[in-house]
Design a protein around this nucleic acid. Structure first.
Length: 254
DNA sequence: CCTGCCACTAGACCGGAAGC
DNA sequence: GCTTCCGGTCTAGTGGCAGG
């Protein structure tokens, strides 16, 4: 079934999450069966019956503050005390993230840890080795450079890569009205650049569910529709509406 | 009873390789 | 050329346990 169809895409993504989530649930159920003494039934009932509604608002607020504080603490530690990207020195907090130095395949933590969970885990384990702070741009670029050494050397695949790179440059050049560059900060390294859906992916114009090569092909074929712009990884991530900045990048908020 | 800490769910965003 | 699959990152909201 073609995943170009929005419903199929949604279903496919959901299945992925169920598979990831199920493993954790199975482990937890097993743990409950083996160690019933660990789970306090009285507390569980009390929580469900009394606490949930009345304290949810406060918990949300406390939770957010706590998570932000831990994130800053972890990023500062892995920046060797001066908050910033290990590669380019970028200091904007919103652009920074934790990078697995040897890749996610060689991680020391449980496989499903990411986001807040990873920050909590790192702090709890007293900041283990093997992690560093990178900005989104350097993270993107590093992922690409790691891949380069393992690419297929089959002639047809080499040709396909060449063709897609040419297509990317062509599409990005059109939306940059010049050489490909970020429309916010002006950075021009191709590895850093991404195609941003200006109004998010909720507005379906035919390209909302596409990504990467498929999106570039769609844009070229459709005569370069409006509603897209070129942004670097940092600016794209920063403007994300879900972060409650109304789609405005950190550069423009300053 | 309150609160801190951590885990889980359900997504969001992006990319490229390779099979068909 | 299109589709599938897998890689990376992140968040909000809330369940659950433990200890003060």
């Amino acid at each position: 079934m073609p995943l170009k169809d929005p419903e199929s895409r949604k279903l496919y993504d959901r299945k992925r999450w169920i598979v990831r989530g199920k493993k954790q649930n199975e482990l937890k159920r097993f743990d409950r069966l083996k160690n019933p003494e660990k789970y306090n039934e009285r507390d569980r009932k009390r929580w469900i019956g009394e606490r949930r509604d009345k304290s949810n608002k406060k918990r949300q607020e406390n939770g957010m503050n706590e998570r932000r504080a831990i994130r800053i603490e972890v990023l500062t530690h892995y920046s060797k005390q001066t908050l910033g990207c290990a590669f380019c020195g970028e200091q904007e907090l919103e652009f920074l993230s934790i990078d697995h130095i040897d890749g996610k395949k060689n991680i020391k933590h449980p496989k499903n840890l990411d986001g807040w969970h990873l920050y909590f885990w790192l702090k709890r384990k007293n900041f283990p080795e093997g992690y560093q702070v990178l900005c989104r741009n350097c993270n993107l670029s590093k992922a690409y450079m790691n891949k380069v050494t393992t690419l297929s050397l089959e002639p047809k695949n080499i040709l396909a890569r060449k063709r897609l790179k040419k297509l990317k440059i062509e599409v990005f050049s059109y939306y940059s009205k010049d050489v490909p560059k970020c429309s916010c900060c002006g950075i021009y390294q191709l590895n850093f650049l991404t195609m941003d859906h200006i109004h998010g992916r909720k507005i379906d114009d035919g390209g909302s569910k596409l990504r990467g090569n498929a999106l570039y092909t769609f844009l070229k074929k459709s005569g370069y529709p409006s509603g897209y712009q070129v942004l670097c990884g940092n600016c794209n991530y920063s403007k994300d509406a879900k972060k409650k900045f109304l789609g405005i990048c950190a550069h423009k908020r300053q």
